[in-house]
Design a protein around this nucleic acid. Sequence first.
DNA 1: AACTTCGGTTTATTTATTGAACCAGTAGTT
DNA 2: AACTACTGGTTCAATAAATAAACCGAAGTT
Lengths: 276, 276
Amino acid sequence: MTTGSGTVEKALALLPFFTEQSPTLGLSRLARLSGINKATTLRYLLALQSAGFIEQDAETSAYYLGPAFSKYARIRMAANPFQRVVDRVSASLASLTNETAHVSRLGHEELETVALVEGTRSARVILAQGERLPLHATASGLSLLGWATNEVLDAVLASELEVFTEHTISTTEQLLAVVQEVRTKGFSYGNQGFELDVVGIAAPYFDESGFAVGAVAVAFPVSRSTPDLERRVAIAVTAAGRELTTALGGVEPPTFPKARSDTEPSRASEVVTITS
Amino acid sequence: MTTGSGTVEKALALLPFFTEQSPTLGLSRLARLSGINKATTLRYLLALQSAGFIEQDAETSAYYLGPAFSKYARIRMAANPFQRVVDRVSASLASLTNETAHVSRLGHEELETVALVEGTRSARVILAQGERLPLHATASGLSLLGWATNEVLDAVLASELEVFTEHTISTTEQLLAVVQEVRTKGFSYGNQGFELDVVGIAAPYFDESGFAVGAVAVAFPVSRSTPDLERRVAIAVTAAGRELTTALGGVEPPTFPKARSDTEPSRASEVVTITS
DNA sequence: AACTTCGGTTTATTTATTGAACCAGTAGTT
DNA sequence: AACTACTGGTTCAATAAATAAACCGAAGTT
């Protein structure tokens, strides 16, 4: 993917193998996974370690991500106020709904997680960090597709729609219908399209060109899904998306539904289910 | 210091130049600062960029830290529950005191910031991220020296005690006296030793060997310093240090002052409990 | 209009990277 | 107790990569 030919690229390519599923890795295992020679892998690890990006467990001698990430994540916020807003918005969303909040942005034809705050409930949704987050199978992706550039939409339509669950949108007809619905509503409803038992509600945010560049979502177990919760969440993520748009210096496109908080408050509850 | 001979080390050595004071840097400027050839610097930046560690402003073409740090910081928390505890503890300390909270750990003869949450007051202490944080001139460092290994203490005593302000401890006699005081109190009081107008109160936390490996501190302007605030903060940081010790699987050394819960039972428990 | 600085590119030279083989230690099997 | 299959880590000659000075065009300054 991002495999450049330079030494630095290759060294940094080790990092994506550290995921929430396997946050610690041994030398041999990492070398095998990455396909890089073991000696070279070790040199990379030592280099990363000297900069604080990798630490080694003294007992098991397994490697894991180092403290430098926290440090630079903080510094990044100074350079990029948007990240700070993202953190604040996702945190308030999570505390408001008690469910898992998630902000993502459009990467190479898939979503990249920008912020993630888990809900407080014991049965909260735990979003796997390293996962793929495809555009056609998640609430965030669908909301983004509703307002993405034609380029992005066409690319997804042209690609094979990978099926994750029995609810995953798998045909271009379905996808276009959902996208059309998203465009009228302003937010999306993702019904277990990526993972069973998980539903999500998402709204896009826009850059200055008026195209969606990311989405903010709240995910919860389907068992907790009620019209009331969904209505509240829909309103909350829409407001959050708007806040992110302004923080980004972006603008909502003219066709984006205005807030109808006063006009049709009851209608939102009708919005509950898109798929079935 | 961390300047390794390898290419990867040199590329990563660019990152520390991004600080909260100068979060964005141009190519030439960065090359000049780092002493690395401009062409090489650019190659490094591109490599870092391809991995998401650097982003470039489309308009000014200045570089700044990328989103990958946030991503890996999150993943690190999965591998290292301690970091998660650190974040929670520092956040609750800051909200409890409304002052700047700071958790650090012992690095190469100086402190490394592990978490930093600014207070909400308008005249809050803003701790410069990239700064050196010497052991002998900060509250955190002093609290750590009180319970560090002899190796660390001797190294500091043997080194030259850099003077930052008129209040900086500059002689070994002074330092030993303060260290002794820290050992009886269990926490340290840093009086403008590093920066004028800033006072701090810190407590150490310990690893399984029973030696201090870091400290947690609260810093505030000297103008706001009152006996009441200082007492509350001292109790809070001590409790926070204890929490970090247990989170780290560490133990307080036998000589470490026990909680004066016998003397002031209700107060300590009252102040401390902001959990989950 | 001369001067400086910017981001970025080119190229031959040189330097660091590479990887197969090799240790030594450990845990499980027979 | 020998055998096997792992582990983390090391060595060194072959090789492929990194390097840096000079250069370019553009954008400000004086």
